[in-house]
Design a protein around this nucleic acid. Structure first.
Length: 585
RNA sequence: GCCCUCGUAGCUCAGCAGGACAGAGCAAUCGCCUCCUAAGCGAUAGGUCACAGGUUCGAGUCCUGUCGAGGGCGCCA
């Protein structure tokens, strides 16, 4: 609807240019917008204000000229010049009458567009290390990334959803050692547990299943394991201690058995994460292995490309990338003095690989704690001749849980945290999804568990869902009374929708595609959440003000059509957010 | 110290890529079910948009600085 109005204004401007009344250039900043105030019409354009100076005319005179030039359209009832030179456009009732059959015939596709024209976009999100179950912080990234991906798909992009699996690297070794030590305990060995190890109960679970299936196959004497290791904290350095422990485990188990223990931990946690996300309504097209990059030699190649381009140098035995020449605040190491490449090197390779796979645009959803990492990745892309602007990093702030006003603890290493699974079980998937995306992502989120669980009007999830259920209920009533709920075709009877509440509901419904597009392009799912609340509100108000199942057959038909269109729009919006649209509550 | 994000009503937050008198939900006060689910609706009250400059016809929105909150600055991932 907005587009149609926009094109009217644009063609008027083009005519003024053709007539030599306006310069042909410099129309940037000209907008057609929804008005906030009904008194200002439905749409408003600032064109005269923006262009007056260049045209050498007073804004109001230009506005009058613009109004006179506007092509006639059945959409527009009247046009006014207002204030300093705004052009206010009032839509005709007919404009809204076509909307209802449009929504009903478009159905689930209402709000979708071809804006993206099938351009390929990749959204990578969550990508948590498989060293433990997902916690509530990951949940926010999951909900956010999933909805951003849904929104982009809705406006016509070819979206690929990807999870980057950090299955290489030291953290995974620490997990493997943690599992092994728990296993040794189950075998009856007396082994201290490193302060740096993963202490969660899930480590016991993995160790137990290993022990159940393999018996004592991986058993080694505790004294042998810890003989002459550098001391753990508080006496020594816990990093040195655990690194030595990893090396010892490798040596005592041999590469093959060590690998098996390692794989056991990885597979267990990955399966757990997949299952968890799947129940959360988050599905991926690709689980991309970091290890596979290294095994293919992609990391070496990336480093080689940097070297060939002359952006590497050696210092203190390590290999550095001069990222500071590309906007980073300091240079970064890509290969350590022992020759092992860093996580950063893998990440460069990974992003190059994404581009090589043909995505026009890359979206990474990261925790806000990684923000310092953004400039170096973009620096690497720039250094290799890629356009760093093709990578969009969206930083999601942490979420804190509040239960009866108290903040819930969060610490991955100690295993003392609320998991996404627990959250889902406690508040349900719908409430969790909705609450997670209610706030802008760069805003700290205080997740009120009591509110999310409350079955009351205070709870925005129920509020929106209730609007949907209420419509279904009305239709059930109608069916019970033997009233036909199949609406008449086309625009029949819609001219009867003249009440203020009906007009208002129609206006909100007509805005839905604009909301989807704006939310997708700005990557701001919260706009959709707010919109749905507004739509639900308008519906509830209407419900309270008018009876739908009235005696007058034609009016009843019109109203049923209107609430069917409302239900469809609510459904579509909830679906994008990943929240169910219940028929009863 | 340097960098990032944020600072709007008592509380939690919107404010649409600068626009016409600053919005919503809670909480507070007052109303509304012989009627399609009251998990609902209406009304009242409540704000120098942290502060100071600047850009602009026009600033909550853009720029600079100050103050305040959170986060980040490893040959960790």
């Amino acid at each position: 609807m907005k587009q149609q109005v926009e094109s009217l204004v644009t063609s008027a401007l083009e005519r003024l240019v053709a007539e030599g009344f306006l310069p042909g250039e410099g129309h940037a900043g000209v907008q057609v917008e929804r008005t906030r105030d009904r008194g200002h019409g439905d749409f408003s354009s600032n064109a005269a204000l923006v262009l007056a100076k260049r045209a050498g005319v007073k804004p109001r005179d230009l506005a009058a000229r613009l109004v006179a030039t506007l092509p006639p359209s059945p959409l527009i009832e009247r046009v006014e010049v207002a204030g300093p030179g705004f052009v206010n456009l009032f839509l005709s009732p007919a404009a809204y009458q076509v909307l209802v059959p449009h929504i009903l015939t478009t159905g689930a596709a209402y709000g979708c567009s071809d804006f993206g024209a099938g351009r390929r976009v990749q959204v990578e999100f969550v990508s948590a290390n498989p060293t433990g179950p997902l916690h509530v912080g990951h949940g926010r990234g999951a909900a956010y990334g999933a909805v951003v991906a849904n929104l982009l798909a809705a406006v016509g992009f070819a979206v690929q959803r990807e999870y980057y699996v950090n299955d290489a690297g030291r953290q995974m070794d620490i997990l493997a050692v943690s599992v092994w030590l728990r296993y040794l305990e189950l075998c009856g060995e007396e082994t201290p547990f490193p302060s740096n190890g993963y202490q969660g109960d899930y480590v016991w679970d993995i160790a137990a299943s290993l022990h159940r299936e393999q018996g004592d196959a991986y058993r080694r004497a505790g004294s042998q394991v810890f003989a002459e290791l550098p001391p753990d904290e508080p006496v020594g350095n816990r990093e040195n201690h655990i690194d030595a422990l990893i090396a010892r485990a490798r040596r005592l188990l041999g590469d093959q058995d060590y690998r098996r223990v390692f794989e056991r931990g990885l597979e267990h946690l990955l399966a757990d994460i997949r299952d968890d996300l799947s129940h959360f309504g988050v599905e991926y097209d690709e689980w991309y292995s970091e290890r596979s990059l290294a095994e293919r030699g992609a990391v070496e190649q990336a480093v080689e490309r940097l070297r060939a381009a002359g952006h590497l140098y050696e210092r203190d035995g390590a290999l550095w990338f001069c990222s500071s020449a590309f906007g980073d605040e300091k240079d970064r190491v890509v290969a350590r003095d022992d020759g092992r490449t860093t996580y950063f090197a893998s990440d460069i390779a990974y992003h190059l690989d994404k581009l090589a796979r043909g995505f026009e645009r890359l979206i990474d959803v990261w925790g806000a704690d990684h923000h310092g990492y953004v400039p170096r990745v973009q620096a690497a892309l720039a250094a290799l001749g890629e356009d760093p602007d093709r990578l969009d990093v969206l930083l999601v702030q942490f979420a804190s849980l509040y239960r009866s006003g108290e903040r819930a603890p969060m610490s991955t290493r100690s295993g003392d945290f609320v998991t996404l699974r627990q959250l889902r079980k406690e508040v349900g998937r719908d409430a969790a999804r909705f609450f997670y995306i209610m706030r802008r992502c760069e805003q700290h989120l205080d997740f009120d568990l009591d509110l999310a669980k409350s079955r009351s009007a205070d709870n925005p999830v129920y509020y929106v869902q209730y609007a949907h259920a209420r419509i279904c209920s009305v239709l059930r009533q109608a069916a019970e009374k033997g009233i036909a709920i199949a609406p008449s075709p086309g625009e029949t009877n819609l001219e009867l929708l003249t009440a203020t509440h009906e007009r208002s509901l129609l206006e909100v419904l007509s805005r839905y595609p604009e909301v989807i597009e704006a939310a997708a392009l700005t990557r701001e799912p919260h706009q959709l959440a707010h919109y749905l609340r507004e739509l639900a509100n308008d519906f509830h108000t209407y419900y309270n003000a008018h009876q739908f199942l009235v005696e007058n057959r034609r009016l009843r038909d019109a109203r049923i059509k209107l609430i069917l269109a409302t239900r469809q729009t609510l459904r579509n919006g909830l679906d994008l957010i990943g929240v169910s649209a219940p028929e009863t509550m």
